[in-house]
Design a protein around this nucleic acid. Sequence first.
DNA 1: GTGGTCTAGACCACG
DNA 2: GTGGTCTAGACCACC
Lengths: 138, 138, 138, 138
Amino acid sequence: MSEFRIEITTGSRTPIYRQIVDQVRLAAATGALPAGYAMPSVRILAEELLVNANTIVKAYAELVREGVLESHQGKGFFVAAKRQVYSRAERTRRLQQALDSFIHQVAFLDFSADEICKAVAERLQDLHAQLDSVRARA
Amino acid sequence: MSEFRIEITTGSRTPIYRQIVDQVRLAAATGALPAGYAMPSVRILAEELLVNANTIVKAYAELVREGVLESHQGKGFFVAAKRQVYSRAERTRRLQQALDSFIHQVAFLDFSADEICKAVAERLQDLHAQLDSVRARA
Amino acid sequence: MSEFRIEITTGSRTPIYRQIVDQVRLAAATGALPAGYAMPSVRILAEELLVNANTIVKAYAELVREGVLESHQGKGFFVAAKRQVYSRAERTRRLQQALDSFIHQVAFLDFSADEICKAVAERLQDLHAQLDSVRARA
Amino acid sequence: MSEFRIEITTGSRTPIYRQIVDQVRLAAATGALPAGYAMPSVRILAEELLVNANTIVKAYAELVREGVLESHQGKGFFVAAKRQVYSRAERTRRLQQALDSFIHQVAFLDFSADEICKAVAERLQDLHAQLDSVRARA
DNA sequence: GTGGTCTAGACCACG
DNA sequence: GTGGTCTAGACCACC
């Protein structure tokens, strides 16, 4: 029984394989997926998410390339031991970059700064609550 | 009086026409491009940016559809007076979509929710400061 | 179960891509095209209608922007669930614009206001009847 | 002093010259512009409407071609004596055609039939009131 | 297989 | 001069 759930948003502008990569990378970085954790097989995950198996293959391949996962021939994919660590500068750079894109998309929608901040805070709270619940069960 | 310049980076994963749309839309939203401003003609801008004219046409057409620009036959494109094109539901939908993408990019960077919220608030403040300064000059 | 066919008249003063947009939009609004319906692929439709594929791309893209269709990468275009994309103000603006054009075409025909109103009412009734019949079959 | 005013909607999808043609044809057909009436000169009208003189030239030329106006060399343009008369069938055909286009544009805007009928009735009333006031002054 | 973007160039309509 | 449409064909990304 796996307590970690990937959720994909169909019809989003970001392709499915990238959503998977992002979420697994995230979960590994935050510890939701501990080192050595056995990822669901390509087949199983494809069925679960109702997507093409090739999409999963592509996502796992990219995660291996990034060092997030390790492929053990014939056994499957496992979360790598050595976690990716970013320097403070790199992390800040990435945050600012994501912010740029976010602001660009949202600025013209005529929401007040308060509304936007509130929405961001809400989402972050949801996310952390979800992660905590996964950790508690683990 | 500051000239408005569009800058594109070819080879980016965001298509050229979208880079143009985003920049013009933002500039119009903040008032950097005032209503009535005559945009550079399709052919001129295409030459300036070293892209095909059809790419500019596509970008301008999308901006017209969003109510940011107006097309006057034989005269060119002009910045439109601000109006609310999208329904509240649609705007919320778009905010949530942008949020999705932002959160997924940012969550695994190990910033606290407070830090992220603060960064967002700061950026929004910058944006509104810019808007106010444009208004003051008018 | 009635097949849905798009019919275009080349050489009309309304461009091909707009003829497609109008027909699909109306069919979706009346329920003739149910939500989830898989539209013919760009290439197939281009072949059927004997027009360039880019013309279809343009039409479908516009329908996506209006919320009528959804694009699923690698799978095709599907009729979207109905939602309110435009603000009340925008919808009113569009109604007034259509009215302008209609009135100018019709006023000089020397029909009385009553006759014209009656004709409009009749057509609208036909439309709603069609909508109801589609719902009833569902 | 001319009591007949052409009003153009800039930014409409229908070109300016066509708006002029439609309105003059209409006014001539309803009698608002009596036979023999001297149209404003190309220059004057261009100034009044704030459009290019060539646009007026084009509109007048089309009206002459249709038999609505007559050009008297060196004196200007005059409303033709023999008014265009359509057969009942032709008038009905044109009404239905205009209706088609109107319904197409409006159907997906989610206005109730009542709202639309009311809007149409209102516009027709405005138009007739305007025509009556012009006639009264003549 | 699907859609998405971009280029190049033609032709038309509008002002 | 301006924008608007359409064609033809290339190349890419996604599934």
